[in-house]
Design a protein around this nucleic acid. Structure first.
Lengths: 157, 157
DNA sequence: GTGATTAGACAACCTTGTTGTCTATTTGAG
DNA sequence: CTCAAATAGACAACAAGGTTGTCTAATCAC
């Protein structure tokens, strides 16, 4: 049986998992426990202007209820603060805290380092080509991180 | 802020999701509802010799309890049959049904077609290069899923 | 033969999602 | 201006795919 197409999909997943697991492990060494890609993605969206639960849901293409749960978690870890919006009494305005910004910066450094390590393994050209090939496939697709459980495992590997 | 490393991880995820979503959609058009990659992986592992819940768990590097849940679901959809093993009264022997085999074949055809479409977009060379670059990064991580009789490591240790 | 290992069932729980329902507030059409 | 519709967010129940932990029954090793 030909499995080339299915194996390719698997390979993409394995590539993401490898990076995400290694990155999460490095972050936990810095004291950021249970920080996962979805959290970084949410913080990024908030920084980009999605400063309420409903807006964050729209930005991440998830329901506002799911966004609210993520916000609760991020607030509990001190990465996000919520304050009543004086101009709209229904809203709770979101703000990324200093601690949140620091974590994001450290996480970015870690993932940049992982990418550099990959480059040194296979050459910068190969990584750049991979990015271009992938980019032309996914196009402008919104990245949805909505597969429950796919990243819930401990990065023990 | 440099986001090259983090963006690369997200790109890999988006690539997987694009393929998986398109593939699942095609499968659902053929009447296979809610078939996800994890189900295909499980069927593949069973075919490769993991013919009991505990063995399937080891093959997929998940707990036997998680494997049993997947088996229950696959049995409910008629892709897998369970029969008592006459040679070991503790075991329930797994078998991929005709319907399961048919679904796998149709799924493989779909994913092969997705891969071919991608090739026609960016060139066969680019896709082959991407596969090689990824393979050298993830190493044996992906082979683990497809290797029959994987017994080098016990996840329940 | 006996103690350790193994298979599988069952239950409780986690995470990241989903619907559905509800109240309070804001918006907008007439 | 008013009142219906839309929106924000809270709360609850549930799904999917995992995790521990506990338990019984069967098999294996010595």
């Amino acid at each position: 049986m030909s499995r080339r197409g299915a194996d390719l999909a698997l390979l993409l997943l394995a590539g993401f998992r490898s990076m995400a697991d290694r990155g999460s492990e490095e972050l936990s060494k810095l004291g950021y426990d249970d920080v996962r890609p979805v959290h970084d993605f949410a913080l990024h969206s908030i920084l980009a202007g999605a400063d309420s639960a409903s807006e964050l849901g729209r930005a991440m293409s998830i329901t506002k209820q799911a966004a609210a749960k993520t916000i609760t978690l991020l607030e509990g870890r001190g990465f996000v603060a919520r304050e009543p919006d004086p101009s709209d009494k229904r809203r709770m305005q979101l703000r990324v805290t200093e601690r949140g910004l620091t974590m994001m910066r450290e996480g970015e450094a870690i993932f940049d380092r992982l990418r550099t390590e990959w480059e040194s393994q296979v050459g910068a050209d190969a990584v750049a080509a991979l990015e271009q090939t992938l980019q032309s496939y996914v196009g402008a697709d919104v990245i949805r991180i909505d597969t429950p459980g796919w990243d819930a495992r401990d990065p023990e590997a």
